[in-house]
Design a binder for these strands. Structure first.
Length: 257
DNA sequence: ATGGCTTTAAAATAAAGA
């Protein structure tokens, strides 16, 4: 059972690329982030034509997450995180598919830091941690997939000094991320690549892709029940080099059935 | 680089991203 995640940077602008990726890789589940559309303009029909049912949580202009499932209906568990009633940003969607709990996560960027956006990021990470603790207690196979906007280790970035003052790499962001791992969640791609050098994002600017100036911020965090079933994990980086590409590449895990 | 691209929203610029 392949579960993928892709920050697509605009679901409508990227639709041909997205359909192409789904048809070529055929994941059982695809989590999307930054769909950047309101609920009534999500292209559900285009996904249905190639066998995918979807749930989505959109927002005007930016953010927005979705979960697609191949030849089955995702059973929605929740949208949004508790803890901040006034938070209207569409960044979290959770569903059950084929006995696996799947979340599509778009964690706040947090720049510039310090500042209000950075504070929001850190609060959001603690709210996510609280939700993940609840899922943990359910003792279900869970895959928390998405754009965490955190570079966990120095070997997850092409140049640590270049990003040192960025919210993605600040100690506070890393500490919050490592608290999730301390809770027991497994970083499927990181743990399989201890040597680092695996990127999921390359900036559009300054020829970052051509120079391979990237970093790893898209992650798949697994509960013990799903980590026991993990047979492979990776990044499909070739999609970053295609025409009209997102600035992220898709990530994926494979669980035994 | 307080921004070199890129998207959305909307009608020229501005916000947001990482």
């Amino acid at each position: 059972m392949k579960i993928a995640s892709f920050n697509i940077n605009g679901v409508r602008a990227r639709l041909p690329r997205l359909i192409e990726w789904l048809e070529e890789t055929r994941p059982a589940v695809a989590c999307l982030q930054e769909i950047k559309c309101q609920d009534d303009s999500f292209p559900a029909d285009d996904f249905a034509k190639i066998g995918y049912s979807a749930i989505w949580h959109g927002q005007k202009g930016f953010n927005g997450v979705a979960i697609l499932a191949l030849e089955q209906e995702p059973q929605e568990i929740r949208r949004g995180l508790d803890g901040e009633a006034e938070d209207v940003q569409a960044r979290y969607l959770e569903a059950d598919i084929n006995g696996v709990r799947v979340a599509s996560i778009y964690l706040p960027n947090g720049n510039p830091q310090p500042g209000e956006k950075f504070d929001y990021k850190l609060r959001w990470m603690e709210r996510l941690r609280a939700r993940m603790a609840e899922i943990w207690d359910e003792q279900v196979p869970a895959a928390m997939m998405g754009d965490y906007n955190v570079i966990p280790r120095d070997n997850d970035v092409w140049s640590p000094p270049a990003m040192a003052d960025d919210a993605l790499m600040r100690p506070e962001s890393r500490d919050a991320y490592f608290r999730l791992l301390s809770d027991g969640w497994i970083d499927a791609i990181g743990s399989r690549n201890p040597q680092g050098g695996v990127w999921t994002y390359w900036d559009y600017q300054a020829g970052a892709w051509q120079r391979d100036h990237g970093f790893r911020i898209d992650h798949a965090l697994l509960s013990p029940e799903s980590a026991d079933r993990l047979v492979a994990a990776g990044v499909d980086r070739t999609y970053r080099g295609r025409e009209k590409a997102s600035d992220h590449a898709p990530i994926w895990i494979e669980l035994s059935v």
